[in-house]
């Protein structure tokens, strides 16, 4: 990812407190290029996480021992919160409740602190003590292999598909690239692209900042940002006439109902769910019920065995026939 270092310098570091910013901006390029997360925790070492490892950061660059690292201060955290919220905590209350903010460039900042609870629900997060800056990476081409399996050439239809993987397995990256490929209609589709609707409850797929997608999701794509999935899917069906609906991390009863509605309305659905195997997913009451109805024509399993986004297996939904398996060397 040649752009990662530039993105961190241009988009993420201006939002860090000055002392932390100075440290991050002076990191060697080869480290910035592979950086996945920058972690700030109150009175604890500043850490960056990169593919396959992590580094403690001292005032003059990476250090070996945690005690030599720069300890993140209260002031750093307060300032960082001000900067990522553009001095407007009031404008990001909903995001703060969810525990994350999206910043320009589509990067996400995860937050932890003290939750103020009212009526059993989180009212707001206060006294923020941890920040996790997750660098958004767009892997263009990540969905090409999968697209060949979920596109029905005869009918020209995208098949209903469910992407399953453990966290950090590359689900969102795959969904994003599928949205882009289907929307633009290049390559495998051999025809004009399709209208794609993304219901992006956690602003992860399109990485919207103030409603505008920061990542490339194709030019025939409409994004409903930060919208609850069930409501968003219904809204899409009513007013945006999508041919394909893409959504992330389904699992609630409402989501399932809305997905059924979309499928019966003749719209292709591509969704994702946490899990590492079919058995595991089937044990979850809501997901198990959905899978038993055989709505999904393709089940796509990812893992991070050979790096994030390793395509493990693709199963034909109804009969459970494997169409692709990494262990057996491909198709």
């Amino acid at each position: 990812m040649p752009n990662t270092a530039g993105n961190i310098i241009k988009q993420i570091s201006p939002l860090l407190a000055p002392k932390v910013r100075f440290i991050v901006e002076n990191l060697p390029n080869e480290l910035l290029v592979k950086t996945e997360e920058i972690r700030l925790r109150h009175s604890r070492p500043l850490i960056i996480i990169w593919s396959g490892g992590e580094s403690y950061l001292g005032p003059k660059g990476p250090v070996v021992a945690p005690r030599d690292a720069y300890m993140v201060s209260d002031e750093d955290l307060v300032k960082t919160l001000e900067l990522i919220s553009s001095y407007s905590l009031y404008a990001y209350e909903e995001e703060l409740k969810q525990g994350y903010l999206t910043i320009p460039g589509g990067h996400r900042v995860g937050l932890a602190g003290r939750a103020v609870v009212e009526g059993g629900r989180i009212k707001v997060l206060r006294d923020i003590s941890s920040f996790n800056f997750r660098v958004a990476r767009q892997v263009k081409g990540a969905g090409e292999k999968v697209l060949a399996f979920i596109f029905d050439r005869r009918s020209g239809r995208i098949l209903h598909s469910l992407v399953i993987s453990p966290p950090q397995g590359g689900k969102t990256t795959l969904l994003r690239d599928l949205a882009r490929l289907i929307s633009e209609g290049a390559g495998i589709l051999g025809q004009a692209g399709k209208k794609v609707g993304i219901v992006d409850e956690r602003s992860e797929i399109a990485g919207c900042y103030q409603g505008v997608p920061q990542l490339d999701v194709g030019f025939r794509t409409d994004v409903l940002d930060a919208c609850p999935k069930a409501e968003g899917i219904m809204l899409m069906l009513r007013s945006l006439s999508p041919q394909v609906i893409i959504t992330d991390e389904i699992g609630r009863g409402d989501d399932v109902k809305a997905i059924e509605e979309a499928i019966h309305a003749g719209v292709s659905v591509i969704a994702s769910a946490h899990g590492s195997s079919l058995e595991e997913i089937c044990q979850r009451p809501i997901m198990g019920g959905l899978l038993q109805k055989n709505y999904f024509e393709r089940l796509i399993f990812l893992s991070n065995r050979r790096g994030p986004g390793t395509l493990e297996m693709i199963i034909e939904g109804e009969k459970g026939l494997p169409l692709y398996s990494l262990r057996h060397g491909g198709e």
């Binding site: 001000e82 919220s85 001095y87 407007s88 009031y90 703060l96």
Partner: peptide
């Protein structure tokens, strides 16, 4: 400026 939630602000 900017330190509180909406009602506080």
């Amino acid at each position: 400026w900017g330190q509180c939630d909406k009602s506080g602000q």
